[in-house]
């Protein structure tokens, strides 16, 4: 079941557009937030009913965009390290390796306590402050080993 808050957000999103289908991205985002970072089949079934879409259309929309984690639960903190050109030039690979060592997981994995998921992404639009990463909604820029340690320590 979608949370009441998610349903309210969908109601609000529907007011932005002349058709219901347009609200699908907002709806999926609300559903993902409500579930704590990922989407399941049931969410899409429910969204399909609200937006008068076929379930497969909701599924197809969700699966096109990389930020929807379909059937892939993520940890409390989803760490996404940029590895595209500007970050790579400034040592992104080094940061990623350091992260893997510190968290004792490989890229794409979640720590045993479900606290951290480590992913790599292709350019987050923060190239002048490379290397950088995004943890949940927040950007962390100009990274080096010490700064990464400090940020991780600050996460409860």
């Amino acid at each position: 079941m979608l949370s009441e808050e998610a349903k309210k957000e969908i109601e609000k999103a529907l007011r932005k557009y002349p058709n219901k289908r347009s609200a699908v991205m907002d709806a999926l985002r609300s559903a993902q937030k409500a579930r704590g970072g990922h989407l399941e089949k049931a969410d899409m079934d429910e969204i399909a009913v609200i937006l008068e879409m076929q379930a497969v259309e909701v599924n197809a929309a969700a699966a096109f965009y990389t930020m929807y984690n379909i059937d892939k639960p993520v940890g409390k903190y989803h760490i996404q390290v940029c590895r595209n050109i500007s970050c790579s030039l400034m040592g992104a690979e080094h940061i990623i390796k350091h992260m893997e060592r510190t968290l004792n997981i490989k890229t794409g994995e979640t720590t045993g306590d479900k606290k951290f998921t480590l992913s790599t992404v292709e350019c987050l639009g923060s190239c002048g402050t490379a290397p950088m990463m995004q943890i949940n909604d927040d950007f962390h820029e100009n990274l080096d080993e010490a700064k990464v340690e400090e940020i991780l320590k600050g996460l409860e």
Partner: peptide
């Protein structure tokens, strides 16, 4: 019927059913 869709994108795009 509209029960088929394309899941994923790029060379991972797959035309199939809901889940």
């Amino acid at each position: 019927a509209n029960v088929l869709g394309a899941l994923g994108r790029g060379d991972h795009q797959e035309e199939t059913s809901f889940f």
